[in-house]
Design a protein around this nucleic acid. Sequence first.
DNA 1: GGGATAGTGTACCGTACGGTATAGTGGTTG
DNA 2: CAACCACTATACCGTACGGTACACTATCCC
Lengths: 188, 188
Amino acid sequence: MDNRQNIMDQALRLFAAKGYEAVGVEQIARAARVTKPTLYHYFGSKAGLLDELLQVNFLALLEAVRPAADYQGDLPLTLYRLAGAYFDFAKQNPEFYRLQLSLWLGPHQSESSLAVRPWAHRQQTLLVDLFLAAARDHGNMKGRQQRYAVSYLGQVNTFIGLVLNGFLEPSDGMVFNLVHQFMHGIYS
Amino acid sequence: MDNRQNIMDQALRLFAAKGYEAVGVEQIARAARVTKPTLYHYFGSKAGLLDELLQVNFLALLEAVRPAADYQGDLPLTLYRLAGAYFDFAKQNPEFYRLQLSLWLGPHQSESSLAVRPWAHRQQTLLVDLFLAAARDHGNMKGRQQRYAVSYLGQVNTFIGLVLNGFLEPSDGMVFNLVHQFMHGIYS
DNA sequence: GGGATAGTGTACCGTACGGTATAGTGGTTG
DNA sequence: CAACCACTATACCGTACGGTACACTATCCC
């Protein structure tokens, strides 16, 4: 009976499945068994609904992965733990993760992709900081933190995306393999 | 004066910038300085226009990268050449590549993402075949071709996407670094 | 010249879009 | 009791959507 939460749940489900632009406000309201004015009472606009959705879920994502990104001298351990945190979060919030992924490299002028930009930036900052911290112990990293951050998150997101879309069957060793390959390449 | 080509150019530009669902047929026709019936004469429907767009450009992409994926005993060389082919193609067709990327991990039930699925599959097949061919010389690869194909293309696409969207400045060594990291990891 | 054919413009179809004015409802607070 | 306030339903706004009927023109082949 919590209409607000209900609207957010249905909106997330529909946005993730069909894309933000392809889903109408009416459709969301119908799915949540409320009428449009109710939706507009809580969120003001369709874009406001998306913003709220992104904020709630990205804050949860950051909260879930930030502790895992805490570098304490063991880079492999941290990377493994972090990838695990991402996979776990994606598994628990598959719809949000799918939505997020679709916006990550989405059309750069669509309002939905613009809305996700600051959150993507915060994630990247988290990773750059991790590699910067690790650089104190691995002196030979200078200038490469950004590339590492980008490719690490890219690799994690690629695998999560392919699993979520059913193009790749998940397996127990996937996280380990992914991180191992990131660190040592395919020649090992 | 070539209306058909004009419509395709403008549609590609608009789809890449705002997304397929967010662009109206009227808008495309106006940008191409024709009227809607002209567009419908050539393409039958909005979806037909997208399909044609994808077919033409994906065939060009496959033609551009297939020779580079021809394995002749030197895997590093092949991977380097192939990544270069992808980057070159993306640089020459930035709008198509952006569109393609936005659909790659896009909402899995949207018709635009469904339209790109078979082409993504053909690309992946190309890469799996490459790693399978290489496996004859690198016997220790069994069962990992798919993971390699997926992560290789994921890595290439991640970097191209970030460069195309301006999140990462392109550099001369980028392709080399990317492939080197794919083969040897960050610990080298 | 005459008939077919590809291509294009005018005007229009029904529907769905995002959003809102207005009038309530029920419960809480003075 | 009365004023208030968060919330919800009916009914509607103007606009844009994807798509089309139809008439017209230019070109080409006979």
